[in-house]
């Protein structure tokens, strides 16, 4: 082939690719999709690098998905003037991250630990996998990976179709819903409208999720299937003691360096909350964390301002409730003695 023909082929390929990308992007936007960031090790590592900001200017959050949905970072940063560094991982125990921060002698800041009992007191390896992978990525990250992260950030902020979580080739093929052969375990797939991720790692439910009870019920069904799959009883006895000892050791290390640690039990509701109360009685789990570590804690049921929320799918707050929760959470934190030197005065609703 003459080079002229190769150039023609290349130009045709280029035009077709541009046309496809533009068409696909336009179609997705018309369907209500919004930009979302892939919450992988690189995004986590980017936030992990920020924990060394001075304690009077930043607060680090660790935990599971609830704090990612329930803490509205814009609200937090506008009111407190503090940078919120979100390190929580979906479906995971925060303990590996707590330990990682505790062993980092340079971390001396403020730390809020979100407690979702079913994950916090779990010793199942699967619940620690994402935090451990993220920590490993943070430690092993190469300069080239950092570079790629920044280019990727630029692109993800502009294009809806760059949503690996829901719109990658594999996810699109999974959408064919081909019936599985007998005996294969199929991890329950969340509806794509459940959540989107911001660059600050905050998650939020889509308008469709808030409006459509059918989607909410799908998610409730997934929580129920998780409950049925969980064969191990909640940790107790020596197992529970060892978890609490590990938490205490980590907390002590941070506090010994001048850091502050506070635990928070974020809201859940309905059948999920009922199940949590039965499986993890407050006095046996939540109260023991506070007693063993000597840290302050905020349990949503103790404060009327944050006790009334109804979670659309039993476990996470809607974006509007997240704003209300965050404002009141800041207020309660101040009552507990936390100070925000850069705080602005905004009237609470």
């Amino acid at each position: 082939m003459e080079s002229k023909n190769l150039v023609r082929a290349g130009v045709l390929a280029f035009v077709l690719v541009i046309a496809f990308v533009a068409g696909w992007e336009f179609y997705l936007r018309s369907k209500g999709f919004d930009t979302s960031y892939y919450d992988d090790g690189s995004l986590w590592a980017n936030k992990r690098e920020m924990v060394y900001e001075p304690a009077n200017k930043a607060t680090v959050f660790i935990g599971s998905s609830r704090i990612k949905f329930d803490l509205d970072i814009n609200t937090w940063e506008n009111i407190t003037g503090d940078h919120a560094i979100q390190l929580a991982c979906v479906g995971s125990t925060p303990l590996p991250i707590l330990e990682n921060l505790a062993n980092d002698k340079n971390f001396k800041g403020k730390l809020v630990v979100d407690v979702t009992e079913g994950l916090f007191f779990s010793s199942a390896a699967g619940n620690a996998r994402t935090p451990n992978e993220n920590i490993k990525y943070y430690k092993d990250q190469t300069p080239a990976q950092r570079g790629s992260f920044h280019v990727n950030h630029l692109l993800e902020s502009q294009f809806v179709f760059l949503d690996k979580e829901w719109l990658s080739l594999n996810e699109l093929l999974a959408g064919l819903h081909i019936r599985n052969r007998p005996g294969v375990y199929n991890f329950p797939g969340f509806p794509s409208d459940f959540g989107r991720v911001k660059f600050n790692r905050q998650e939020y439910m889509t308008n469709k999720m808030i409006a459509d009870t059918n989607i909410q019920n799908q998610v409730k069904g997934i929580w129920n299937s998780f409950r049925q799959m969980s064969k191990d009883p909640p940790a107790s006895g020596a197992k529970l003691d060892s978890i609490l000892t590990a938490v205490k050791n980590s907390v002590d290390k941070i506090r010994a360096r001048g850091g502050q640690v506070l635990f928070v039990r974020t809201p859940s509701s309905g059948a999920y909350l009922m199940g949590e109360k039965m499986g993890f009685p407050r006095e046996k789990y939540w109260e023991r964390i506070l007693a063993v570590t000597g840290c302050p804690g905020i349990h949503f049921e103790d404060y009327p301002a944050i006790a009334h929320f109804v979670c659309p799918e039993f476990s996470h707050l809607s974006p509007s409730d997240a704003i209300v929760f965050t404002k009141n959470f800041i207020n309660i934190l101040q009552e507990k003695g936390w100070t925000f030197p850069h705080k602005q005065t905004i009237a609470l609703k």
Partner: peptide, 24 residues
């Protein structure tokens, strides 16, 4: 190959590459 066929195959590879979103 005819240039248009090569162009089609080339674009299909690139589109699948973009859609797969597996990088690095």
């Amino acid at each position: 190959m005819p240039w248009w066929l090569l162009g089609l195959i080339w674009s299909a590879m690139l589109i699948l590459l973009i859609l797969s979103q597996e990088s690095s």
